[in-house]
Nucleic acid binder design. Structure first.
Lengths: 353, 353
DNA sequence: CACGGTTTGGCAACCGGTTGTCAGAGTGTG
DNA sequence: CACACTCTGACAACCGGTTGCCAAACCGTG
């Protein structure tokens, strides 16, 4: 047998390559040398255990443990084509809405042995597009949240690599949809029952599909109930926009507002307070998402609670289901997450005019 | 010349490899074939432009543009040893403190052409350790925030790969320190000037070095000023812990509290409100960090404002300075970020007993 | 004992780049 | 015109794995 020869030549090379005691990470070649087998056998022992003999595998596993071996993910990715990473694109990391989403994806990805590549696209469609192109090689799949890009671009991108969108309903592209439109109806009922007859919708960005969907749901619900709704905005989804939103709501003369999201709603609360307009006595405010802070702002915000973290997990599950079709897993290409209205202190009976 | 021969053989292989029109991403070999040069020449043209002739380079660049070439980062990493990625370890993604930090690192890394690998260690030292080991190959460097691991472990890890810590002062390990101890003195002055003589410190986790440093600063400042401070806790850095913190503060009979961080402080505000204890009339509360939400909670929180996002950027700069020593850049191994007290509504004159 | 089938392990090509080395071409000088 | 020197590009090894294919070894059976 050529065991000793192979072993010694390997260790010689090793000694020469790392003479200064710089214990560089072990490779399968080191293990192979130590066990007197070929590198390919080591590879198989670790990735296709059934392929090698029970005794050989044990020896290899022992050696691997001793050398504290960790596979080099770059090399693995290069040769196998799978990177073990999933890209997650969010428009704004500092938006609390995405915190929970990110945590959801992170947890689920880690559980499945994947790495999360988080990218903040800074609300820019260009960054979005270039990132997606870049990730095409760097990741096995991608999860994009409420992107700026058009349906056609998204569809084309989905054809090139596994993709799941969140809150973006494009036919042919797997999606997780947070069903705020339904909760919007609940919110309107809530306001109507409190005596409000004129309600404003503080719209999000024009390009936001979520905003359009909510407005559509709201206006049709309003029609059914015979109340008047008007659309104000657009407003950027940040607390700072709340000031302008509040002023425009006051000017419009409504007694209640449904904001595109909690950030705008919270900003409105601050502005209304500055102007001495009481919430909910003079004006009722409803937010959307129930983000961090919605429960402790002043007054606590009535809002539509979304299962955000869960949405992140579902998105990951859907994506992984596509990546590994064999592993079973529901192969649904669309998942709707229910939401509900959480009533807190920012809504109350309509002011008697 | 063998140009035509090489060219045709290449394109043949190419045609065979991708017959079904599956336009897989272009490689340097495709470019080489198209230009009739060797792959190595393409590599040099793109990474060491001076190394190839002006005209050849132009041809190659044109071909690369036409084929929409993007280098495969895995392959690049494998052969060059540099991954172009930096790991960022945070204990809890959903803690708003880290949002700003993450955004800071993300922005600075992207500007330098690096990718951010974000990992939530879930407040666990084991996850921290294993992640660091894993990242040793997957990243060029690592930024760890207020880790659980001991000084010795950190020092050992720092010897193995470039590392910068945030809010963790270990000799020999580059660090960005947010100087809350100084602001703690300011906070105490503020409270003392309002007539408070007994103040509680709501401590963070026992293993948190930040918490220890703050307590040390606070107790020595208290001694100088002749006021009494007591330490309560430890409390987990979450709003939920605020309830216990509030109750223990009330029980201790102090008139003012300085919390380890804003999450605890905000949780205390909620609990005190539930119990009918007025802030600041009956109890003053000071937070720490000035996170998202500190300005709109009820009442708005007096807190120590930290330049969190900036800290993230500085950490990245320090790390990159180590990775590319040639590029100049300050080679400091320790950076202290100033903080200041932001007075809002949660602090007021001491209750007259 | 011969034969077919199944394990089991090795060889070598390959993933897509980087980089050391070398040879041929081109340039300038004595 | 010969020689030294620089510029330019090709060749091939290498990074650390994966995987198709083949051959040796081993098995049981007729």
């Amino acid at each position: 047998m050529a065991i000793s020869a192979a072993g010694s030549s390997r260790s010689e090379r090793n000694a020469v390559a790392a003479p200064a005691g710089v214990n560089r990470p072990a490779t399968i070649h080191d293990i192979a040398a130590m066990c007197g087998v070929a590198a390919s056998t080591v590879s198989r022992a670790l990735s296709t255990p059934d392929r090698v003999n029970f005794r050989t595998r044990a020896r290899i596993e022992a050696a691997a443990a001793e050398l504290n071996y960790t596979p080099n993910s770059q090399a693995k990715a290069l040769s196998s084509g799978r990177t073990g990473a999933v890209g997650v694109l969010v428009p704004d990391i500092t938006n609390p809405f995405y915190f929970d989403l990110i945590r959801g994806t992170q947890l689920q990805l880690k559980a499945a042995g994947y790495t999360q590549l988080l990218v903040d696209t800074e609300e820019s469609d260009e960054v979005e597009a270039s990132t997606m192109e870049q990730l095409r090689k760097g990741a096995d799949g991608i999860i994009v949240t409420a992107p700026r890009l058009g349906d056609d671009v998204l569809l084309a991108a989905a054809a090139k690599m596994p993709m799941v969108t969140i809150n973006r309903d494009v036919p042919g592209v797997p999606a997780v949809i947070i069903d705020t439109p339904t909760a919007t109806g609940q919110a309107l009922d809530h306001l109507v029952s409190l005596g409000h007859t004129r309600v404003a919708f503080m719209a999000g960005p024009l390009t936001s599909q979520s905003s359009s969907r909510r407005w559509a749901a709201l206006s049709s619900a309003a029609e059914e109930r015979g109340v008047e709704v008007l659309r104000l905005g657009p407003f950027a989804p940040k607390t700072q926009s709340g000031a302008a939103a509040a002023d425009s709501a006051v000017h419009s003369g409504v007694t209640a507002c449904i904001a595109f999201n909690d950030l705008i709603a919270i900003g409105m609360l601050q502005r209304l307070r500055e102007r001495g307009i009481r919430v909910p006595e003079d004006m009722s405010i409803v937010g959307c998402d129930d983000i961090f802070g919605a429960d402790f702002c002043n007054p606590p915000l009535t809002t539509m609670t979304s299962p955000i973290e869960q949405a992140g997990r579902v998105a990951v599950s859907m994506l992984l289901g596509r990546l590994n079709p064999l592993a079973g897993g529901s192969n649904r290409s669309r998942s709707v997450m229910p939401t509900h209205l959480t009533v807190r202190g920012s809504t109350g009976p309509a002011r008697v005019v």
